[in-house]
């Protein structure tokens, strides 16, 4: 197992390198440049280009950049002059993360619950109810859900603060907003896999053995049906903790998502590169962790995995 993890980590480093290279050249392929403020005079812009090394040939810039990354230096931002990219990530990521893990828990707990309930009541009222909830989850994107929740529960009813402050209470609305679409995805997936498991022979065996419904669901159905859900958890987790620009904007969260979008549109190369690499590392790591967990839970995969992975 340890050898497997080491191998995966090594591969992850390779992947990161490919991504960094890819992003670097993609970004520089654009015909724009970051110093577009109309109030900057041309000579000032030229001076800035020199300052950030953008006047050098691309290959040279690439080598310099890669050297710096190897040293753990992601450079300084262009949009926020002087500020180190790694510091900015360090400051804002925890805020995205605080929302992200809460959202993940909401999504997983309720998603699994709704999915299983739906499957156990296949084509009955509860099934349709959970479909309705799931569909509302996917059909109302956070762009619409966020403002409505903020207005309804924040302004009209006054139950929650309308923006994130230092209290735990204030994290509830944005976490729900963030969680809903993942919740729906998980519940749909869970419903499908549970139905599949319910049709398996070993469930019939368990039934004929006289196990109670509760025991069957707990011991056999859930454990088997949850497998595919675990595979999507990696990317899902990464997507949730990297922050969502929509939720961050609506609830005034000082997270990473908004930085990312605004720096892409403003071509702040060091920031884009820094955040992309950071995101990529997060995603790779969470997939790796999920794979390891998966390997522990599902013994079949360990055997099959030798050929596939």
């Amino acid at each position: 197992m340890l050898k497997y993890i080491l191998k995966r980590l090594l591969m992850a480093l390779g992947t990161l390198w490919v991504i960094a290279t890819l992003t670097f050249f993609l970004m520089h392929a654009l015909p724009n440049d970051p110093f577009t403020d109309p109030k900057l005079k041309p000579e000032v812009k030229q001076a800035l280009r020199v300052k950030y090394g953008l006047d050098k040939p691309l290959s040279e810039q690439y080598i310099i950049y890669m050297k710096n990354i190897a040293k753990g230096d992601l450079g300084t931002s262009i949009k926020y002059p002087g500020r180190s990219v790694s510091d900015m990530i360090k400051q804002s990521f925890p805020k995205s993360f605080a929302l992200g893990w809460r959202a993940l828990i909401i999504a997983v707990v309720f998603g699994i619950f709704f999915g299983v309930v739906a499957a156990l009541n296949h084509q009955k009222f509860l099934d349709y109810l959970s479909i309705i909830i799931a569909i509302i989850g996917v059909s109302i994107p956070s762009i619409i859900l966020g403002p409505i929740l903020a207005y309804l529960f924040g302004v009209q009813l006054g139950w929650f603060p309308v923006t994130v402050d230092k209290t735990q209470w204030s994290l509830i609305l944005p976490s729900i907003t963030l969680a809903l679409s993942s919740l729906a995805t998980i519940s749909r997936l869970m419903r499908t896999t549970t139905l599949e498991v319910l049709g398996q022979d070993y469930i019939s065996t368990a039934k004929s053995k006289g196990l109670s419904r509760y025991q069957i669901v707990w011991k056999h159905v859930l454990r088997n049906a949850i497998m595919p859900v675990i595979t999507v958890l990696g990317p899902l987790f990464a997507a949730l903790i990297t922050g969502s620009i929509v939720v961050e904007k609506i609830f005034a969260v000082a997270g990473l998502g908004e930085y990312f979008v605004s720096t892409i549109t403003e071509q702040d190369y060091p920031m884009i590169m820094g955040i992309t690499i950071f995101y990529a590392a997060l995603i790779i790591l969470s997939i790796l962790i999920v794979d390891i967990i998966y390997g522990f839970i599902d013994p079949r995969l360990r055997i099959a995995g030798k050929g596939g992975k």
Binding site: G158, K249, A252
Partner: peptide, 18 residues
């Protein structure tokens, strides 16, 4: 001074007395 990008959020904050 809270940093708030979204105008709608600002209005909400004003309305809730923050």
């Amino acid at each position: 001074m809270k940093i708030v990008n979204d105008v709608e959020t600002r209005t909400n904050l004003l309305k809730t007395g923050v």
